[in-house]
Structures are given as structure tokens and as C-alpha cells.
Design a protein around this nucleic acid. Structure first.
Length: 862
DNA sequence: TTAAACTGCAA
DNA sequence: TATTGCAGTTTAA
């Protein structure tokens, strides 16, 4: 039995955060909004028969004039929607706003106003005890939850909170965040927003059946084993008990275990819902001998292949077990962080603290530990300084919550999601292997490179600062220009020099990115572009590598499967998925310091045209399938011949390239002819493209009556029409998928998971392709890694980038590595995944033994 | 100190 | 009116 806990109505922190002034009257005099409206300090209205309190944003014009809550268009809209669900806004609900006076011109309430006004409804809640609280929109969410979740409180956008029903120990109510009805009303024409809002309201109404929320005193479930004897006895009894499953959690000295001095400071274990145990491991309270004894007992449990293991972030616990304890964790069952992501792929959603809050109303149990856990960028945190009892309590709660989360998630997944979860779990184990092995890097090379770049940048700046443009800036502004400041560059180019604006940023300012600067008629442009490129190489790549090369001489990037909305992977610390390759100078600088392990070589294999093949599989478009099946045909060449009005045999490599990347792919992913025309035309100009016979493309096009840009755009409109006529099954598929999404609010990937939340039309098209394409690689990673282990090979996988993988290869194993990985990636996968209805193909590149990654070349069968 | 805007790198 | 990421710098609050 979980123990019920009765909490004080408001916690001390809660009261502190509300009472910024001594009395309500003082709050109002601080805020002053009441002075500017017709109906100041509107009180709560409605009869509240169903004990629902609705907190909206603020009174609008209508509300202010009539002194009634939710009476304007948005309010009427909500009334109607609730009435359709047998809820009468006046009779069943109480209504108030997060601020009770109308702000001038309906502007958004400020944080300060929200805080000063909060007491109006907290007083009401205390007196009337609503059972349900609907939060309508960002302001209400901010007002209600702001400051409650520490760091997590930072993201209070309604998209993150909608669709949840949160038990709140502070008010003893179920809290249900919804979109602001005025937002839904404003987009009444938008089927998507309407269907989402309808679903959210259905969900909210379905929650009204709930019993009163119950709360648990999690601390009372934690047994702290701070003496060596107790910890040892516990581990021995655990080995004897041989539980079916355990959730565990570590507190460690940092993020990565590779450098000297890193420790697993404490461990907690949970095997049942009401009991978790935590004990110090490599903590100074024990002697080294004692630590070793506990570590060896704990290792036995980790390697026991009849106990299933669960952790919140599997790769982390697996990695630290591996490096610090030399343990190979047996029988991983679930990563609750990844499962949380599979169940709901919204961002900022998978953290244990957030999950604990929205599921069980548990908040701030980490408050006292926070300062010891944050490292502010340093390699080591201050965890060993933390009071031991607090550390162990916190650690214990983490494994307890992981266990709870696991149990709930198992009930929430459908069969497809369960399959995908197990598949992902296998992937996470491979990721942990990759992370622990890392990639050999030449520290001295990067130190030298850092100096070299510094010098080059210095010279370039010297030129830039002595330019007429820099002098002009100084004369006008009375200070030196900063060439790294977008603001200063904007000032210089578009105010002082009055150059024409070629491109705008998202917020409408003149853009000063590389493309914009390149097209400016300005002599410093070249140096400016070069210097910003070198700064990027130095700052983002070299700088990061210098920090990330460990004492073992290797870089250990992290990989995650719990971040992206498309169920691809991501990489960080450093991100190994954006190492320069297109820019030849950057490519050479960065890749030249990366090596295979001593005596080995790097095998690098890429799926070719994977996304197009996946398009063919999921759309089942026969024209596309035929193009892929018949190697004598070439889709991009055919489209190029249409775009440039050439015979197929006169299509040059460049023209094919721009047809592919400027038209075919953009069209597949939802772009349209005008943008394609603009980009292709620009490429023709920038790169002076020619036909295969060597004629300038513009001359050729002119001979076909395409003389100016507008002609070309009109022509591409025809090409586009014909394109979608040919790929009409693809087009129909797009329509079908969009309809499905509009109706159901999610995208069902062919590999199992669902992409939920707000998606655009283009998202819907794209998501069906991106994730499953990556899942082909994940399949290959898992099976290739398993083969290496089962066959006791010395080669190992060191990296992956969406559709390619890097293998640190033992020379004698080279042929086997290549043939096995190829077989798995192209043949075995089709035996297991019948939905892959077209052949797959991979391209292999290798380095020589001990040669840098930069020098890899195409592999030819021997 | 923190968040947002901008930029640039990859698939 | 093409998508997904991570990370750096600058700027404003």
C-alpha cells in the first residue's frame, strides 16, 4: 500500500511566491491596472455545481463593459463547446481570470501582474475547493505553475502542458491546461486547430469522472543505507531474493566517466512500488576496501541475467556501469526516459522531474540537491560535498519514481509502441557501447590548428579594421565596429552604406548571414565571410574537440533516442552529426585529426538515397518504385531534362544535382515551384552551370524561349504540374496522410511510434519518411554490433549519422566487417521488415591503416 | 544570470 | 510555401 499524505494547503514556498505584498489592497496598488478599466477587480462568477474552476487569461473589452467573465466571442465559443459536452459554463463552473482587471488594449498580462493578482483565485480555491481547474492559455498556465518547477518552470507554453490532467497537492484539484479559447476561436477556419481543441476538451471532460487525487509521501518509501554493514547486507539479500526486475539510478561526479577522479557516488534500487533503497558507493564515508566490496556485489547484480533492469536514461547508467565497474549490464528491460518520449514526443517532456510532477503531483524533491548537482560547465559537480542523507534520499526517490513510471508506461503503450520501445532499447545499448569506446583524436593536432586559425583570423581582422567601411562606422558611431555583431553589420551595410536589402530574418530585420553578405556589392565581403567561417571552425569545432578529448585520447559523443519529434537520433557533447563535409577547407581542418584506433582503419558506410527509397515504400507510388527498381532509369536526370529543356543525354552532372536538390527533394517534402525556381535559377547564376556539351545554361534556355526569370518560373509551374501528375499516387498518399492527421491528431510511423502534437502539412509528409529511414540504420547498428560481439570480433562501431555508420576496423576483419554490415543493411533487414518493398543499397568508404578520417576513399571490392 | 534571436554545420 | 537536430555569439532583460 502506498502511504497517503495530507499536505498543508499551501507550502511555505507557495505562500512566499504569492505574497509579494502584505495585503490584497497593496497588491492592487502595486499593479495599478484597476485604475484603467470599467469593471475593476472582477470577482469570480458562476455556480460551480460540478466544482470546475476555469481560469482564463484576462478580462477583454466585452467582459470589462458587462462585468461578466467569458462573455465575449471567445467566451461564447467556449460556452458552446462545453454545452456540446453537457457542461454549462454558468451553472457547472466558476470563472475567473489570471488577472482580474482588463489590461489596456487587451495586451498580454506581465509576469509581475500575474504574480500580484494570483491571490484572488488562490483565496477562492481555499474557500470553495474546486475539484477541477481548467487553465485556459499561456497566462493562466504561467500564473498557476510559474515558479513551481524550478528549471522546468521555464517552459510554460500551452503546447507543452495541454492534454494533461495533473494532480496538484497544493490545491488538491486536478489541473487541466487547455489552449486559450480566443486562440481556438481565431483559428475557427483551421481544421487542425479545431480538431486538436475538440480532442483536448473531450479529454478534459473525460477527466471529470475522476475520484479525488491522492498524494504519496515518497520520502517515506526510501530506506537509506548509510553504513557499510547495512549496504552490504542489503546487496547480499538482493542477490538472494533475485527479484524479477529492478529500477536503479546513480548519482555521479559528472556527465562522463572517462577522466580520472570520476565516481559513482551513490546507487539506489527499487524493486517494488513502496520501497526503494539507496546507499553510498564510491563515497568518502567508506574506505576504499569497503567501496570495492560493495562495487563487486553491485556488479554481480548488474550482470545477473535473470533480473530485468530499468533506468531513466539507460545509456547513462549502462555507460557508467561499464566504465567505472567494468560491468556489462544484463537484461536491460526499459529506458523510462525513452519510453516517455515514445508515449509523447513533445519537447521538454521526458525528464523524470517533469513526469513525476504531471503524473503524481510530486514537485521540488530535488530542491536541496540542485546546487550540488549543477557543474556550471565544469567537469566535476560538487556532489561529494552534499549532506549524505539528503543525497541518498534524493537518489532513492529517483529510482522509486523510475519504477512507478515503468509500471504506468507498460500499461499505456500499444503493441506497435511496445515493439518500437524494445527496438529502441536495443539501439540505446549500442549507443552506450559507442559512447564508451569513443573516437581517437589527435589532441596536439587540434592545439596546433587552434593556434594556426587564431593567427589567420588575426590577419583577416587587421585587414577588416583598416578598411574604409570600418572607418566609416567609426566616424559615424564614435567606436570601433564589431564584425561579429549582427547589429553592427546591419548598421554598417544598410544604414550607413545604404546597400539594398536582399534578405530578411524571421523577425523582418535585414539579414547579415553568409548568403546576404555574399550578394552585397562590398569589398570587405570576402574577408568577412572567410573570417566568420574560420571563427566557426575554431569556436564550434576545434574548441569543442579540445574540451571533449579525454585523457584516453578519445572523443566520446553522446547519442540519444529521446529528443527528436521524428524519432530520429540526436547527438551532443560534441554533436557528431554536424562535422563539416561540404566546405572543403573546413572538412580538411576538422577531419584531419580524427583517426582509427592504433593499427586499425575506419570503415564508413552510407545508405544511398535512403529517404527516396523509404518514400517509395510508404507511398507505394508505382512510378517511384519503378525508378528505384530499374537501374537503367534515372529519375533526377529525367526531371533535369524537363526543367532545363534538354535531351536526357545532354544533362550534365551539375544540372542533375540541382534538379535533385533544388526541385525533386523540395517537392517531395512540400516546397513548391516558386521557391524551387528561385533556388535553381540562382544556382545557374552562381555556378555558371553548363549543359553536357558545354553551352551556358542561360544561352540554352534562351534558345528555348526562357529568357528571364519569370519565364523560368512559369515553366517550372508546368513541370510541377506534370511531376505530380506522374507521381499521382504519392500525391494521393500525402492527401490521405494529412486527412488522417487532421482527424486523429497524430502521425503513425510505419515503424511503430506516433508523432503527436501540432504539425504542419509539411511536417506530416516529412515525418513519415525521416524516422523510418533512420530506423533502417538503427536496425543495422543493432545487428552489426551484435554480430561483432557474437563473433568475438575486435572491430567496433564508433559513430552514426542518420544514414551512415563509422566502424573502427581491425585490419584482418576488414572484409568480414564490410560484407556482414552490407548484408545486414540491405538483405537481412528486408527479411525482417516486409514493408521495405524496394532494394536498399550502401556505399562503402575506408581509410588506410592509421590514416585520418579525412583521407577516406571509396572502397572497391577486392 | 538567462532567454531569445541569429547564424551555421550535418542528414 | 522543405524537415530534423546542436552549439556558438550577441543582445536585452
Amino acid at each position: 500500500m502506498k502511504t497517503l499524505v495530507v499536505k498543508p494547503f499551501f507550502t511555505e514556498e507557495e505562500i512566499d511566491s504569492v505574497q509579494t505584498a502584505q495585503s490584497n489592497e497593496t497588491n492592487c496598488s502595486l499593479c495599478k491596472l484597476y485604475k484603467g478599466c470599467i469593471s475593476p477587480k472582477m470577482s469570480v462568477t458562476g455556480q460551480g455545481k460540478k466544482k470546475i474552476l476555469i481560469i482564463a487569461e484576462a478580462p477583454g473589452k466585452n467582459e470589462d463593459e458587462k462585468n461578466i467573465q467569458l462573455i465575449g466571442d471567445a467566451g461564447q465559443y467556449l460556452r458552446k463547446k462545453l454545452a456540446e459536452r453537457n457542461i454549462d459554463l454558468e451553472v457547472d463552473c466558476w470563472k475567473t481570470n489570471s488577472i482580474v482587471c482588463r489590461p489596456p488594449n487587451n495586451r498580454k498580462p506581465t509576469k509581475r501582474e500575474l504574480k500580484l493578482c494570483k491571490q484572488n483565485y488562490t483565496d477562492f480555491i481555499q474557500e470553495n475547493k474546486p475539484k477541477f481547474i481548467f487553465l485556459l492559455g499561456a497566462a493562466a498556465i504561467e500564473s498557476y505553475f510559474g515558479g513551481r518547477l524550478g528549471e522546468d518552470g521555464g517552459n510554460l507554453s500551452p503546447t507543452r502542458w495541454r492534454g494533461l490532467c495533473i494532480p496538484d497537492p497544493v490545491t488538491n484539484a486536478w489541473v487541466i491546461p487547455l489552449f486559450n479559447p480566443s486562440y481556438a476561436k481565431r483559428f475557427e477556419w483551421d481544421n487542425l486547430i479545431q480538431s486538436q481543441y475538440e480532442r483536448d476538451l473531450d479529454f478534459a471532460v473525460s477527466c471529470l469522472k475522476k475520484q479525488d487525487p491522492i498524494f504519496y509521501d515518497v520520502a517515506s518509501y526510501i530506506t537509506i543505507l548509510s553504513s557499510f554493514k547495512k549496504a552490504k547486507t542489503f546487496l547480499l539479500s538482493l542477490i538472494k531474493a533475485n527479484p524479477k526486475l529492478l529500477a536503479f539510478d546513480y548519482e555521479t561526479t559528472g556527465l562522463k566517466p572517462f577522466n580520472k577522479g570520476h565516481k559513482i557516488v551513490s546507487v539506489s534500487v527499487c524493486c517494488e512500488p513502496t520501497k526503494a533503497y539507496s546507499f553510498p558507493l564510491q563515497h568518502p564515508c567508506f574506505t576504499i576496501e569497503e567501496q570495492k566490496e560493495l562495487m563487486s556485489l553491485w556488479k554481480k547484480i548488474l550482470e545477473n541475467n535473470s533480473i530485468k533492469k530499468v533506468a531513466h536514461n539507460l545509456s547513462f547508467e549502462d555507460l557508467w556501469s561499464n566504465i567505472i565497474l567494468d560491468a556489462l549490464v544484463s537484461l536491460w528491460e526499459s529506458c523510462t526516459m525513452n519510453t516517455a518520449h515514445i508515449l509523447d514526443s513533445r519537447t521538454a517532456f521526458t525528464g523524470l522531474k517533469f513526469q513525476a510532477f504531471v503524473r503524481w503531483g510530486i514537485q521540488n524533491y530535488d530542491a536541496e540537491m540542485k546546487k550540488y548537482l549543477s557543474s556550471n560547465g565544469a567537469e566535476f559537480n560538487r556532489i561529494v560535498e552534499a549532506p549524505l542523507d539528503k543525497l541518498l534520499l534524493y537518489n532513492g526517490i529517483d529510482s522509486l519514481l523510475t519504477y512507478w513510471l515503468y509500471e504506468e508506461q507498460e500499461k499505456e503503450m500499444n503493441d506497435d509502441e511496445k515493439w518500437f520501445q524494445q527496438f529502441n532499447k536495443e539501439g540505446l545499448i549500442v549507443f552506450s557501447d559507442m559512447q564508451s569506446k569513443g573516437i581517437l583524436a589527435d589532441l596536439d593536432y587540434y592545439k596546433e590548428l587552434d593556434k594556426e586559425l587564431k593567427d589567420k583570423i588575426k590577419i583577416l581582422y587587421k585587414n577588416l579594421f583598416s578598411s574604409d567601411e570600418a572607418k566609416l562606422f567609426k566616424k559615424n558611431k564614435g567606436r570601433e565596429i564589431s564584425f561579429t555583431s549582427d547589429k553592427d553589420l546591419r548598421e554598417l551595410f544598410f544604414k550607413l552604406m545604404k546597400l539594398p536589402v536582399v534578405k530578411e530574418t524571421d523577425t523582418g530585420l535585414p539579414s547579415v548571414d553568409a548568403e546576404a553578405i555574399k550578394s552585397l556589392d562590398c569589398s570587405i565581403a570576402k574577408d568577412l565571410l572567410e573570417v566568420s567561417k574560420l571563427e566557426k571552425i575554431k569556436g564550434t569545432y576545434v574548441g569543442q574537440f579540445l574540451r571533449e578529448i579525454n585523457e584516453d585520447g578519445r572523443i566520446h559523443p553522446f547519442y540519444s533516442l529521446s529528443k527528436t519529434t521524428t524519432f530520429r537520433s540526436s547527438s551532443s557533447n560534441p554533436n557528431w552529426q554536424n562535422i563539416p563535409v561540404r566546405d572543403t577547407e573546413a572538412k580538411k581542418y576538422i577531419r584531419s585529426g580524427i583517426y582509427p584506433s592504433r593499427g586499425n582503419l575506419i570503415v564508413d558506410y552510407d545508405y544511398s538515397a535512403l529517404e527516396v527509397r523509404i518514400c517509395a515504400c510508404v507511398t507505394e507510388d508505382d512510378v517511384l518504385i519503378n525508378y528505384i527498381n530499374d537501374p537503367t532509369t534515372d529519375m533526377h536526370r529525367d526531371i533535369a531534362s524537363q526543367i532545363f529543356k534538354l535531351n536526357p543525354e545532354n544533362v550534365s552532372k551539375d544540372l542533375r544535382f540541382y534538379a535533385k536538390n533544388g526541385f525533386v527533394f523540395p517537392e517531395f517534402y512540400g516546397s513548391y515551384f516558386k521557391n524551387c525556381a528561385k533556388n535553381v535559377w540562382k544556382a545557374c547564376e552562381d555556378f555558371e552551370l553548363k549543359t553536357k556539351e558545354g553551352q551556358f545554361i542561360f544561352d540554352h534556355l534562351a534558345s528555348k524561349n526562357i529568357k528571364v526569370y519569370q519565364d523560368f518560373e512559369n515553366h517550372l509551374e508546368d513541370v510541377e504540374r506534370d511531376f505530380w501528375d506522374r507521381f499521382r499516387i504519392f500525391k494521393k498518399w500525402q492527401e490521405k496522410k494529412w486527412k488522417f492527421y487532421e482527424k486523429n491528431g497524430y502521425v503513425q510511423l510505419i515503424t511503430g511510434p506516433r508523432c503527436k502534437g501540432f504539425l504542419t502539412r509539411n511536417d506530416v509528409i516529412n515525418y513519415h519518411i525521416q524516422g523510418p529511414a533512420f530506423h533502417c540504420l538503427l536496425y543495422s547498428l543493432i545487428n552489426t554490433n551484435n554480430h561483432f560481439i557474437d563473433a568475438d570480433m575486435q572491430s567496433f562501431i564508433i559513430g552514426q549519422i542518420h544514414d551512415c555508420m563509422l566502424i573502427d576496423t581491425f585490419p584482418e576483419e576488414k572484409n568480414e566487417v564490410i560484407s556482414v554490415s552490407k548484408y545486414i543493411a540491405t538483405e537481412k533487414i528486408r527479411e525482417d521488415w516486409k514493408w521495405i518493398i524496394v532494394p536498399l543499397d550502401v556505399e562503402v568508404e575506408t581509410t588506410e591503416i592509421d590514416q585520418t578520417w579525412y583521407l577516406k576513399t571509396d572502397y572497391k571490392e577486392e
